[in-house]
Write a protein that binds this DNA or RNA. Structure first.
Length: 241
RNA sequence: UGACCCAUUUAAUC
């Protein structure tokens, strides 16, 4: 399984499949982890029919999909422009006796956000909470992205506050999402405020945050400010990308 | 029953 997964992660689906064949040929029964890795690999390669086939085959082999398998299948469809299919797999989970986990909800929220369907994303968040699944950092960050991409900066900031209130500490993703939004709308003053919050949080900015912040200065026409960030970044030992 | 062990989700620039 580790080898198959390594192949999948490196984009070598062909090798993953041949290891899978070898595995079966030498009498080792693939388990749920094996199938999940392959579904993921097939999804990345856009081979949806093949992924679906394994998704069915595993049940016949007595390996029922678990939440991670469903997640891999949902992502396979979602990343290949089949939101409709992704959603039907998502909706089938309950009936299959598999409860969606935070990853599941987070992915679905992300997919709706990417389509600009902010209200649908909010509905999934509500559903998540109804099911007793607690939103985590990724949930909040994903929702913030949905808002900023939809031009609702204020709502994104509200999410940051909601996040803190729920005891989930914002991370570098949270800040970079807001900084990027400020940069894209040339709201330098907001960006400066967010960057200040970040410093006070005790987190150390990384290259993504610095890049977004330089962008905020740059787009606002403040070259000196941008250079100042650049110097700070190098001083902090942060390597440019 | 639980923990651990192999597989899943979010940000900038290009």
């Amino acid at each position: 399984n580790s080898l198959i997964n390594a192949c999948v992660r490196c984009g070598r689906l062909d090798k993953a499949v041949s290891v899978f064949q070898e595995m079966k040929g030498s009498g080792f029964a693939p388990n749920v982890v094996t199938y999940t890795s392959l579904v993921e690999g097939l999804g990345r390669a856009g081979k949806l029919a093949e992924a679906e086939r394994l998704f069915s085959e595993m049940r016949r082999q007595g390996q029922d999909p678990n939440s991670r398998t469903f997640n891999a299948m949902i992502r396979a469809y979602g990343d290949n422009g089949r939101l409709d299919r992704a959603l039907s797999v998502f909706e089938s989970m309950e009936g299959e006796g598999c409860a969606p986990d935070a990853y599941t909800y987070n992915m679905v929220i992300h997919m709706y956000g990417r389509e600009g369907r902010v209200e649908a994303a909010e509905a999934v968040l509500a559903q998540m909470q109804e099911q007793g699944c607690h939103p985590d950092r990724v949930t909040y960050n994903t929702l913030m992205t949905a808002y900023t991409k939809g031009g609702h900066y204020d709502k994104a900031v509200q999410v940051l506050q909601m996040m803190r209130k729920s005891g989930v500490a914002p991370d570098l993703y949270s800040y970079s999402i807001l900084l990027d939004a400020c940069a894209k709308t040339c709201s330098l003053q907001h960006a400066i405020k967010i960057f200040d919050d970040l410093r006070n949080s005790g987190l150390h900015p990384n290259v993504v945050v610095y890049t977004a912040m330089m962008n905020a200065y740059g787009r606002a026409g403040d070259i000196d400010g941008a250079e100042e960030i650049w110097r700070e970044m190098k001083m902090a030992g942060c390597v440019p990308s």
